[in-house]
Design a binder for these strands. Structure first.
Length: 482
RNA sequence: GCCUCAUUAGCUCAGUCGGUUAGAGCGGCGGACUGUUAAUCCGUAGGUCCAAGGUUCAAGUCCUUGAUGAGGCGCCA
């Protein structure tokens, strides 16, 4: 007899059919009722012990966390609280779980403690829900792009390019660090390294994605990304997953439309397919916020917030307009900002972004046309515009409440001369990026793309507050456990 | 990297002004329980007070350094 998953059983009519379930014990009540979970859904199924044909010694082994199987009739539940239950004719123990040593307990545990036992935290209701939602979001992203004719492009994880300027990189080498080979000049002799040149883990697949878009038209990447920055925040990881679409012939507006459509689609997908899990996460968040003062609590329940994002267009405004709003804002006039907004040209601090998103507009915001000086070399240079004090680029950042920047993107500079000039000004070695510049030499065209931090999306949708709790085994400074 | 706060039982936390034998809830263990829903009831064990050094007649409590964790900031997705 093959096993049936609990998610399916809970949808089945209780006709007394013989079924087999396998899972982990969540509770054993009244020496009679086993709450069993197999990960297929948030809910448990109730297995009712039949004492007539069950060895009492076996009952002693039904402990919180034990892996067991149960065979029996799927019947209408005689108790309240569930529609169906299994009247067990046979119980099998697959793996005992000694409660004296098991780090998990059938009680509330803090997220900080569970982070220390990340290999076991999947078994909690919260993390079960988080990882089911994470999966649904990943699937929805692939579905969204596939349905629109995008190709999933696998860009390299190991890269020799050190010129992208997207952050500190992890070195990849097979050299013996105790005995580094040296050239006659005393430099490290990378000729003897695996790739015969210095290599790193990728900080972005964008440049490679652009190459693909210049022939395939619409591509996206979805892969691991590495930043060796010493970032200690609830929004940063050293290893995270990033989605980077790149579309030929798209301009900045198309780019914003694409990003907004995508976010709206995947959030809607989660709402539709993860209702039970989102309910658990919503209640978890309410519980967590009970210990906070009223003014720091979320204004909306989790699922209401998600629905709100789907139902309302994101606010679009330029950096220049944002500066005006910030300059005239109450917190700025009253000196409440740690970094006062003085003038045009400096980057926005996260307190400024939070003000725009959480206080002023109270919805997701897309900021565009940032000063060129604070943005990357590959972003398309705007024509001078009246009322705008300095040169800008066709950049866009999407800011989400509680998360900050969730998407960063731009229309790309497709004009060879302007791109080369910019690289020169920013001391980016052109020779090293000859392959990138070739796209501008041969059949160049306007195009645009963006990067979406996958974990930041999962953070937003699950209502979790620390990014280390939405990835299975987080990597951050000083931690590569598991 | 910077700033702030924390570290006491398996977990979450109390611990007053520096003063005798460091407490609670949950969890565990033993027992009861055949309609329970984070089951319930009775009983019970469990401590290197993060580490090292210092002040003091006396340190869980004060000081210094370090480790670890959390939050904020910076870097960014």
């Amino acid at each position: 007899m093959s096993r049936t998953k609990i998610a399916e059983l809970l949808r089945t009519e209780p006709t007394g059919t013989e079924v087999l379930v396998k899972g982990w014990v969540k509770a054993f009540r009244n020496n009679q009722f086993i709450a069993l979970n197999d990960g297929s859904c948030a809910a448990n199924i109730q297995v009712v012990v039949d004492h007539e044909n069950t060895d009492p010694a076996l009952l002693d082994r039904i402990k919180f966390g034990a892996a067991i199987g149960a065979r029996g009739a799927l019947i209408e539940s005689q108790g309240k609280g569930q529609k169906v239950e299994i009247k067990a004719s046979e119980i099998i123990i697959y793996g005992d779980c000694n409660p004296e040593e098991y780090p998990l307990q059938p009680k509330k545990q803090t997220l900080e403690y569970l982070r220390e036992i990340a290999h076991l935290r999947f078994r909690t209701n919260t993390f079960g829900a988080v990882f089911r939602v994470r999966h649904a979001l990943a699937y929805a992203i692939h579905k969204f792009f596939n349905d629109r004719g995008f190709y999933y492009l696998h860009t390299p994880v190991i890269t020799a390019s050190d010129a992208e300027g997207a952050g500190e990189m992890f070195r990849v080498t097979t050299l013996d660090l105790d005995k580094l080979p040296r050239t006659e000049g005393g430099e490290i002799d990378f000729d003897q390294d695996f790739f015969r040149r210095p290599t790193n883990l990728t900080v972005s697949g964008q440049l490679e994605a652009e190459l693909g878009a210049m022939a395939l038209g619409e591509v996206y990447t979805f892969g691991p990304t590495f930043r060796a920055e010493n970032s200690n925040t609830t929004r940063h990881l050293a290893e995270f997953w990033m989605i980077e679409p790149e579309v030929a012939f798209n301009d900045l507006n198309d780019n914003m439309d694409l990003a907004e459509d995508m976010l709206r689609y995947v959030i809607g997908y989660a709402l539709e397919h993860c209702a039970d899990d989102l309910k658990i996460l919503e209640e978890r968040l309410i519980e967590e916020e009970k210990s906070k003062p009223q003014d720091q609590r979320s204004e909306m329940a989790l699922t209401d917030k998600l629905r709100f994002v789907i139902d309302n267009r994101f606010e679009r405004l330029t950096y220049t307009e944002a500066i005006d709003i910030l300059k005239n804002s109450n917190p700025n006039k009253k000196g409440k900002f740690q970094f006062p907004v003085e003038g045009w040209g400096t980057d926005l601090q996260s307190e400024h972004e939070r003000y725009l998103v959480e206080k002023h507009f109270k919805k997701p915001v897309i900021l565009t046309n940032y000063p060129a000086a604070i943005k990357a070399f590959y972003m398309r240079q705007d024509e001078p515009k009246e009322g705008v004090p300095g040169p800008t680029v066709s950049a866009m950042d999407i800011l989400f409440p509680g998360i900050g920047e969730i998407v960063g993107g731009s229309q790309r500079e497709e004009r060879l001369e302007r791109l080369v000039q910019r690289m020169h000004d920013m001391h980016i070695p052109e020779a090293e990026l000859y392959w990138y510049l070739d796209t501008r030499r041969f059949g160049s065209c306007p195009h645009a793309g963006f990067g979406l931090g996958f974990e930041r999306l999962v953070l937003f949708v699950t209502g979790m507050t620390n990014i280390r709790d939405v990835i299975a085994f987080p990597r951050y400074p000083g931690n590569a456990e598991f």
